[in-house]
């Protein structure tokens, strides 16, 4: 290895000496940079020749900024800074190599806040999935030194992502189906139409957004891509039928963390809701933005929706518990009337 080592610059130019004043950095920038570098060196050592673009993506950095950072690393070493005591970073043909002594072979352990943030995120995922989440969080805990555990546990009782009850088992079954490309028969509660439907689907992916899991799948009944909220799946059974890899989705998938949205529709067909009461108006503005809400008074407004499925709109209007009325389209208004009549009948017995 020593023979293959390229000749090192006798004395790396000093940043200050070269006339470029070091940028003033605040304490959090400094820590951020330290953590970045203490991870980068061992990662490159473990993945010699990693393309600079891949490394930049992993670091959430622009490639140019990464190259600057690599230059900086050339100056790091162990006093008294003999050439062999310094980290030697090379970029050759767009690939990164590092030679170092054993000291930087691994990154530092997880800090309390690192473990805390990841554990809090993971615990929000699902329950009843055979303990995967609990085991993963357990491994994080095991990676912390004993002395930090009390602080970690105390803090973990203060940060959480809420779970939706009952999603875990379904999500676990769907994960298996996705991995093995097996068809699944869903019994799905269509909230809008107020009915339970049976659908054979070919599952593509599970996405977690705004506190819920969503299944994106190719629906064999509808012959198209559909999205299903996992806590609205009454039952799911794994079939033995396997399917070939699915073609790309018809529409681009939602961004990570975004709930699936139905396709936008032409202006004239957009559902419009009349809102009554200040809190309904403020809620609508908060959720859909001020542009979607046309205020008449502080407590009266019209909300124009950018195209949720018709049936969903009725449920959505009803979730205002009286403060929202469907104005248009007329067909939807009629549908709402039928549903209201049937529901009211339950309360008149």
């Amino acid at each position: 290895m020593a023979a293959a080592r390229p000749p090192r610059r006798a004395a790396p130019p000093r940043r200050g000496a070269a006339g470029t004043r070091p940028r003033q950095v605040g304490p959090s920038d400094l820590r951020e940079r330290l953590r970045r570098l203490l991870w980068l060196v061992p990662y490159v050592a473990r993945h010699p020749g990693i393309p600079i673009a891949d490394l930049a993506a992993l670091m959430s950095m622009a490639p140019e900024a990464l190259i600057e950072e690599l230059d900086f690393l050339l100056m790091v070493g162990q006093p008294p800074f003999a050439p062999d005591d310094c980290i030697d970073v090379r970029v050759e043909g767009g690939r990164v190599y590092v030679e170092l002594d054993q000291a930087f072979q691994k990154p530092p352990r997880l800090t309390v806040f690192e473990a805390l943030a990841l554990a809090a995120a993971a615990q929000g995922m699902a329950e009843g999935d055979g303990g995967t989440v609990a085991r993963a969080v357990g491994s994080l805990e095991a990676a912390l030194p004993e002395s930090l555990l009390p602080m970690y546990r105390q803090l973990l009782a203060r940060f959480a992502v809420a779970r939706s009850p009952g999603e875990g088992e379904t999500a676990a079954l769907l994960r298996t189906a996705i991995a093995e490309r097996r068809e699944v028969a869903l019994e799905y509660w269509n909230e809008g139409r107020g009915e339970l439907t049976s659908r054979p689907v070919r599952p593509r992916a599970l996405r977690w957004a705004q506190g819920h899991w969503y299944l994106s799948a190719f629906c064999l009944t509808r012959q198209g891509d559909r999205s299903f909220r996992v806590d609205r799946i009454r039952s799911a059974s794994l079939s033995r039928r396997r399917f070939d890899p699915l073609p790309p989705e018809e529409r681009p998938p939602p961004g990570e963390g975004e709930p699936p949205a139905p396709p936008p529709r032409p202006d004239g067909e957009r559902p419009r809701l009349a809102l009554r009461g200040g809190s309904a108006v403020r809620y609508a503005e908060e959720r859909f933005g001020k542009d979607a809400v046309e205020r008449e008074k502080a407590d009266r407004a019209t909300l124009t929706l950018n195209g949720p499925a018709d049936a969903w709109t009725i449920s959505f209007a009803l979730s205002f518990a009286g403060a929202a009325e469907i104005l248009a389209p007329e067909g939807l208004r009629q549908e709402a009337r039928d549903r209201l009549r049937k529901t009211l009948a339950r309360y008149q017995r």
Binding site: Y43, L58, S60, A117, L118, A136, E256, G257
Partner: peptide
């Protein structure tokens, strides 16, 4: 699971100790 949790949390608008979370995931 950690991958899914991490991607959802990082892609969301906000998360407690988000910078720490990104470092945790790198580790």
């Amino acid at each position: 699971v950690l991958y899914a949790a991490g991607s959802a949390a990082l892609a969301g608008e906000a998360f407690p100790f988000r910078e720490d979370l990104a470092h945790a995931l790198k580790k």
